[in-house]
């Protein structure tokens, strides 16, 4: 693996039958980065994130996470990453606190550390007293905030967030962006996908445009905008995909 890289992906291909969801993607994500994957629905963003999260196996190519082979050493990677799926659900009959506590006890060997993580998650989620209610009573936004809190409370070395602010109102979306930024300042690395170009521009240190399973452009938001003469990432993306 390249020195200092948290994620190294080379010539990644993932096929579902005849469909090539990911077709020859290569990426490198450095420590302390917030790396954004941008692209329309079906571009292959979620498949790339699922492979990084050790959920799916590549058809071909090489994926290295934190120095481990994502195929052969998935078990070694999992304690250091956390994954937030785009449509991650909750256990309807557990309270938010119970869920967080169960997850914390899976990640931490000591009860003190687990309790600290739960309190941190409750703070991140902003659920207050509602954290003790059953999750079936939560709104979509509350469930999302809880899941983001769950993903970040374990202080993962790599947080893989698929559409982290989907379904959140502007206030909570802003709060979550701040939480993600703080996580990176504290030494974490984040790779995320988003449809919200403004969010990506604000949050990400580097981005990759994904289109039909390929990376069609990659760089820091400012570099991309300058290179393509666009005023924002949305214009830049349209410019690249229309070529």
């Amino acid at each position: 693996m390249e020195a200092g890289s948290i994620v190294a992906v080379r010539n990644l291909v993932k096929r579902f039958g005849d469909l090539a969801a990911v077709d020859g993607v290569s990426l490198r994500i450095e420590k302390g980065e917030v790396f954004g994957l941008i692209g329309p629905n079906g571009a292959g963003k979620t498949t790339i994130l699922r492979i990084m999260a050790t959920l799916l196996l590549p058809t071909s190519g090489y994926v290295n996470i934190l120095g481990y082979d994502a195929v052969k050493e998935a078990g070694k990677i999992r304690p250091f990453i956390s994954y937030l799926a785009e449509d991650a659900g909750t256990y309807r009959n557990l309270s938010g606190r119970e869920y967080l506590s169960i997850v914390a006890r899976i990640y931490f060997d000591s009860d003190t550390e687990a309790s600290k993580a739960v309190e941190e998650a409750i703070r991140i989620s902003g659920l207050g007293d509602r954290v003790d209610d059953r999750m079936k009573t939560y709104s979509k936004g509350m469930k999302r905030r809880l899941q983001i809190a769950r993903a970040l409370m374990t202080k993962p070395r790599l947080a893989i967030l698929d559409e982290p602010t989907a379904g959140l109102d502007v206030f909570h979306a802003k709060h979550i962006r701040e939480v993600v930024s703080r996580h990176v300042k504290e030494g974490g690395t984040v790779v995320l996908s988003s449809h919200n170009m403004l969010e990506v521009e604000y949050l990400c240190t580097r981005v990759a445009f994904i289109h039909r399973g390929h990376v069609i452009f990659e760089g820091a938001p400012e570099e991309i905008k300058n290179e393509l003469g666009a005023s924002n990432l949305e214009e830049a993306f349209i410019e690249v995909t229309s070529r």
């Binding site: 959920l55 999992r78 304690p79 994954y83 937030l84 799926a85 991650a88 909750t90 899976i106």
Partner: peptide
């Protein structure tokens, strides 16, 4: 409820 996917990423 789409929880199995998350569960399978836990250590």
């Amino acid at each position: 409820e789409k929880t199995l996917e998350t569960l399978l990423t836990f250590p």
